[in-house]
Design a binder for these strands. Structure first.
Length: 111
DNA sequence: GTTTTAACACGTCAACTGGT
DNA sequence: ACCAGTTGACGTGTTAAAAC
């Protein structure tokens, strides 16, 4: 019972260590820079400006998705820990009962 | 029915890390 | 040194439940 996490053995505080499964990305962007001939260079700088904007948009998009994935993993990790707590509490209860039984047995024998 | 509150999800930024 | 990925922190929007 209880779902086991891939890297559960890792230190609890170590958030970097949960299982990482990267979905293969098809995103591919080739960067084309400059080479716009214009006397004033204005068009060129506009082009570069657009390029900067485009790069920023790509970065934001990637980070947006990364954040979503990061949260998903964290949630899963927490759920896993909670499951583990449940299991260990149950186990602890059983062991306490067992110990109690053994103690009783021992006392009865001693009399 | 309206307002308030708590919980949750999201997007963004900044700092850090590991790979090249 | 640079770049891409990861994640904590923060602000914001949404929604369900509680209080009025």
């Amino acid at each position: 019972m209880g779902v086991m996490f891939e890297n559960e053995k890792a230190a609890p505080s170590d958030m970097q260590t949960y299982q990482i499964c990267t979905v293969g990305s098809s995103g591919q962007q080739g960067v084309i820079m400059a080479t716009v001939a214009s006397p004033s260079g204005l068009q060129g700088s506009m082009y570069i400006g657009e390029e900067v904007t485009r790069k920023r948009e790509i970065r934001l998009l990637k980070n947006r998705e990364a954040a979503r994935e990061c949260r998903r993993k964290k949630k899963e990790y927490v759920k896993c820990l909670e499951n583990r707590v449940t299991v260990l509490e149950k186990q602890n209860k059983t062991l306490i009962e067992e110990l109690k039984g053994l103690k009783d047995m021992y006392c009865n024998k001693a009399e």
